[in-house]
Design a protein around this nucleic acid. Sequence first.
DNA 1: AATGAATGAGTATTCATTCAT
DNA 2: TATGAATGAATACTCATTCAT
Lengths: 198, 198, 198, 198
Amino acid sequence: MTAEPTAEPLDRPVRRHDPDRRQRIVEAAIGVIAEHGVAGTTHRLVAAAADVPLGSMTYHFTGLDDLLAQALTVHAERMAVKYQAHFAHVRTTEDLVEAVTDLVHGHAGADERDWAVSYELYLAALRDPALRTVTETWMRRSRGVLEQFVDAATARGVDGLIEGLVMHEVLSTGPVSRTETHEIIARAVRPTTEGAAQ
Amino acid sequence: MTAEPTAEPLDRPVRRHDPDRRQRIVEAAIGVIAEHGVAGTTHRLVAAAADVPLGSMTYHFTGLDDLLAQALTVHAERMAVKYQAHFAHVRTTEDLVEAVTDLVHGHAGADERDWAVSYELYLAALRDPALRTVTETWMRRSRGVLEQFVDAATARGVDGLIEGLVMHEVLSTGPVSRTETHEIIARAVRPTTEGAAQ
Amino acid sequence: MTAEPTAEPLDRPVRRHDPDRRQRIVEAAIGVIAEHGVAGTTHRLVAAAADVPLGSMTYHFTGLDDLLAQALTVHAERMAVKYQAHFAHVRTTEDLVEAVTDLVHGHAGADERDWAVSYELYLAALRDPALRTVTETWMRRSRGVLEQFVDAATARGVDGLIEGLVMHEVLSTGPVSRTETHEIIARAVRPTTEGAAQ
Amino acid sequence: MTAEPTAEPLDRPVRRHDPDRRQRIVEAAIGVIAEHGVAGTTHRLVAAAADVPLGSMTYHFTGLDDLLAQALTVHAERMAVKYQAHFAHVRTTEDLVEAVTDLVHGHAGADERDWAVSYELYLAALRDPALRTVTETWMRRSRGVLEQFVDAATARGVDGLIEGLVMHEVLSTGPVSRTETHEIIARAVRPTTEGAAQ
DNA sequence: AATGAATGAGTATTCATTCAT
DNA sequence: TATGAATGAATACTCATTCAT
């Protein structure tokens, strides 16, 4: 579009040496998945996003599946780290409830794009057994984080609750009451021994 | 090669008058989505599954998107009906806890295929605003069912919990303790006042 | 290249109805194989030769292999017919020797292109078992034709001799003596019972 | 990921001084041609077979055509040597008939792989004039060997017969009678004068 | 009203070759 | 001298959609 008076390097400066290319392609792929979904991710789109020629795609990756798997794996690891970091300063049960509430309301460093990619991973894992290890590792890590503060059963409940509430929040169009979320979560983190609580 | 003068073509009986064809195509589409995902659904696959000629696809539907939207809508309505039916006989709070536990553990008339299609719908709705009305209607109906037994906030919590637990169940490879699920759900359905009372 | 004052049908007249297309593609494929070899045969080349759009290739044939197999099969059948016709008027042993000599010297209705395609078929059959049936049928028919005039062993010898002499003729750059060929063949068609001949 | 300070890279021993590399690549190329055909031979396959880096290919050869030509030339020379050696001990006419029969029945030190490569060469020569010199030299040498025992015309006949019988043997799936082959060849090697005498 | 042949834009992928290191 | 990353042209193939019949 912009006029280029000199004839030579038409649109892309030659970049024969580019050590981080592989990594940049993976990053670009995550972005493309966020925007177009796994199904809409093509070599062409990723190549354009990473500003590399098309041939680089299959040079650095066995194929599109390989690239997608690597991108989703990196994303999952990144999400797990965010999750962990989000709970790093939790001390009391009330801290935990607050942290979970924040997480559901989008204050955990993960935006809607991140969740969209995560759901893409879930769906892909549903059909591709190779991706199951990625989702399982992630789920195990999430539970592990929660189990620092509550027992295993409660951790599973809270983890499921987070999953469902976030999904409904992402899919809903209207606003959601933070107070209500707080109350819902508070019930889930009560000590297992019901009798003791009453 | 040799002419066959007798009778009709063997493999596909001529279907001169076929009033349910449209509906049959939609059913076939749901099946194809379950098996191949929305991304893997093509006119050809659906036509083969419904045993109709390829030309029928764009004759009865404006395009693939149209067909997919109709199939996902039918599926969502069907799931909502199952959901409603599953809670039809609930009377007490304990009934409710049992019903939700059953639902999470796959005894609600919905199998993994159904959930797979549902997740396909979620993901599609994430990118296609036209499908949001479908998911919203479904969510509203689910909450409505639960609100017959508990207050709105609790309903939202239970609904989210169901969503998350089912998703984790579908994605997990190991078995899940039913007793644990029961306990988790029991906490979520306690009347709101109790939580506030402490 | 030629100026077209009217805006509409740019370069290819629309040809929506074209009943013999399949057949025309096969013919074109044979021509392309003759010119570029099996290895050099591409969908694009054949489509251009048949004057059909690229999409027609995989609409009418499962894939390139399918097309190649069909083209080679048609060629083999055609060659067998030529072979048979070439010996139709043979009555005496001398007729036979003359006919074979003619065949080796290129007067059997088959030109170098035909032989080139045949060798392509041989080589393809060497690697693709599915094509073996084609070459075997052809060989059986050739022998059958010769066995009308001589015993089976002699037929095998003459058939082999034809094969080798034609191949060397096709590969050689210099001229070959017809008298010599005649003499070589005459020996091969002598009656099997050596004692009787002397 | 973790740095390995000790020793050398494990999988490919560093080959600092490697004077036979060129030759090894040519050998590897012959093997790849035998297995995948000329059309299926790629730089990558040959490099892997020779266990040399991809860059070696175009470093040692001007291009793939160059490599193929050299490989086919080496193969032809090798075949000619085998041919010559196979007839080294022939003294009488009966020796010759026996030797040729052995050759057709696969006892000449050349297996089916060798013939496959030879046919690849023939076909390549059909389209590439540069390879014609290779096939012509080979043919001239074969005839020369036979002309040690019989006159030129007979040599041409026997050479053609060998070519054809071997090709049919390679392409056929059933067994072939050795006695029959012997008889066929015996007729071809009779002195020319006999044929003329009748 | 219904269909199957036709089409072209788009897809993943391969690979000979180039070139900076 | 030797190499492995890089590249772009070319490949087979898929498929939603169109349209003459």
